[in-house]
């Protein structure tokens, strides 16, 4: 029962979406896709609650048992509710509620979350530099080719580098854009994309038909 029902639901949902694709909108079959997608957005919205429950339970348990770093977990809990509760309260009660400009949510988002997220993303530059320094070695012919190409592309993407490349005869920036980015890069990307798309389609089919059940812990 615990396997059959989910497999059946997956089968029906999958088949309905595939069949509906081939029927005109406005017909019963054609409109089923719309019906299912609306259900998906509703069900998906409810699942967000699961996350709140999980993160609260994990952190609350740690606080209760005074596990290592429990004080930080109190901060996590405060942060969750400080952001969530005012955002769901009606702005009619106070301009601090809701998500409009000037609300608590907006302040926390604009002046705390947003800069923190941008900072985390910015650390990528440090990591890329460190990884390039450590891992980018001309150990073989292939690695050397990769290294030279990467260097040329990095030069091409900056004004100073472009100026430098233009000191050499032949339109190197044009050649890089046409043959490296629009040629070799594109061919490789397409190969991976086609392969991955086929893999995804094949896996979807296995799921719809109930052959692949590993995502439920079965098989």
């Amino acid at each position: 029962m615990r396997t059959t029902v989910p497999v059946l639901i997956a089968f029906i949902s999958g088949i309905v979406l595939v069949v509906s694709f081939f029927f005109r909108k406005g017909t019963w079959l054609g409109d089923l896709e719309q019906e299912f997608t609306v259900w998906l957005t509703i069900v998906g919205g409810f699942t967000l609650l699961l996350g709140v429950v999980s993160i609260t339970r994990v952190n609350w348990t740690a606080v209760k048992r005074k596990k290592e770093g429990w004080k930080y977990k109190i901060l996590t809990l405060i942060a969750i509710f400080a952001m969530a509760i005012p955002s769901v309260l009606s702005p009619d009660w106070s301009p601090l509620f809701g998500r409009a400009e000037g609300s608590i949510y907006d302040w926390l988002f604009q002046y705390q979350m947003s800069p923190m997220m941008a900072t985390m993303f910015a650390t990528l530059a440090f990591y890329i530099a460190s990884a390039a320094f450590r891992a980018f070695r001309a150990r073989s012919l292939e690695a050397t080719l990769l290294l030279v190409t990467a260097t040329l592309i990095m030069l091409w993407r900056i004004p100073m580098g472009e100026w430098f490349l233009n000191l050499f005869p032949g339109d190197i920036p044009y050649l890089l854009n046409t043959y490296i980015m629009g040629g070799i890069n594109m061919a490789v990307q397409r190969g991976i994309i086609i392969g991955a798309a086929l893999g995804a389609a094949s896996m979807s089919l296995r799921i719809i038909l109930g052959i692949e059940r590993t995502y439920m812990g079965k098989g």
Binding site: L198, S202, T214
Partner: peptide
Amino acid sequence: GEELYAASAYLSKEPVMTGGLKGQDFI
């Protein structure tokens, strides 16, 4: 890429799952 999708079939070593991979190769 597709190695990721092949992984569960590869690790399971079940013929039914690997069959799907071969079909994919044919396509």
